[in-house]
Design a protein around this nucleic acid. Structure first.
Length: 211
DNA sequence: GCATTAACCACAG
DNA sequence: CTGTGGTTAATGC
């Protein structure tokens, strides 16, 4: 994985303890000193940032296996965002020194990391523009497709987010999320039972998303 | 004007 | 935490 041989994996993992986080537990807190890269082995996490005024915004939802917190470790002394488990998550904390050693000594690994970071940047450009230009129904449709295709690989899933968090993700209020879900449900685009959602008509959802 | 979109508020399960 | 309804503001015919 990530172009690492056994010895190198050992460098990454030898001083790292595997920890299991329960849903809702914070893996990295905004403002904390950056000492570790976090390797999420398994589970779903949200990357979120509290704005200078008050509100939390969810920047990204990721599923293991994935490295998180990399940009902050290279760019800052403190974490500029938080990472919280959305379901039971296995993760290990990797010392920066070991990570840096691998970057310096394994070009293929470094390339993988660069690709990851680049992909993340490019995706964020798109997400940013979408968020400011699309209507909320389209953003919600995007979120549905994302959960179905990327996170759960199924058209039926149990959302790990509250309505309020869903709002923080697509940039609206919990009330508006409730209304959109209600509308989609009435129009037979999805079925909803609390947090359980099933996509009934992907074509329409794609159309609404405008992608 | 009128319709649509979405925020904010209040109240109720 | 969630659903609903009323109100209000902005935007677009």
């Amino acid at each position: 994985m990530f172009n690492l041989n056994d010895k190198e994996l050992d460098i990454l993992c030898k001083n790292s303890t595997e920890i299991i986080f329960q849903k809702g537990e914070k893996i990295i807190k905004q403002g904390a000193f950056t000492q570790n890269i976090v390797f999420v082995k398994k589970g779903v996490v949200k990357i979120h940032l509290r704005g200078s005024i008050q509100k939390d915004e969810i920047l990204k939802i990721e599923k293991g296996p994935v490295f998180v917190g990399v940009p902050d470790v290279f760019a800052n002394n403190t974490h500029t965002y938080s990472i919280t488990a959305l379901e039971e998550t296995k993760a290990c904390f990797i010392e920066y020194a070991g990570f840096e050693y691998l970057i310096e000594n394994n070009g293929k690994f470094a390339l993988e990391i660069i690709k990851d970071l680049s992909l993340a940047t490019v995706k964020h450009y798109a997400f940013y523009v979408n968020k400011t230009q699309k209507q909320l129904t389209a953003l919600f449709a995007d979120a549905l497709i994302y959960f179905a295709d990327i996170i759960y690989k199924s058209d039926s899933f149990s959302l790990p987010l509250t309505r309020s968090e869903l709002g923080e993700y697509i940039g609206t209020t919990r009330e508006t999320v409730t209304k959109i879900i209600h509308d989609f449900s009435v129009d037979k685009i999805i079925t909803v039972n609390g947090k359980k959602i099933s996509l009934l008509n992907r074509n329409i959802i794609k159309k609404i998303s405008g992608a």
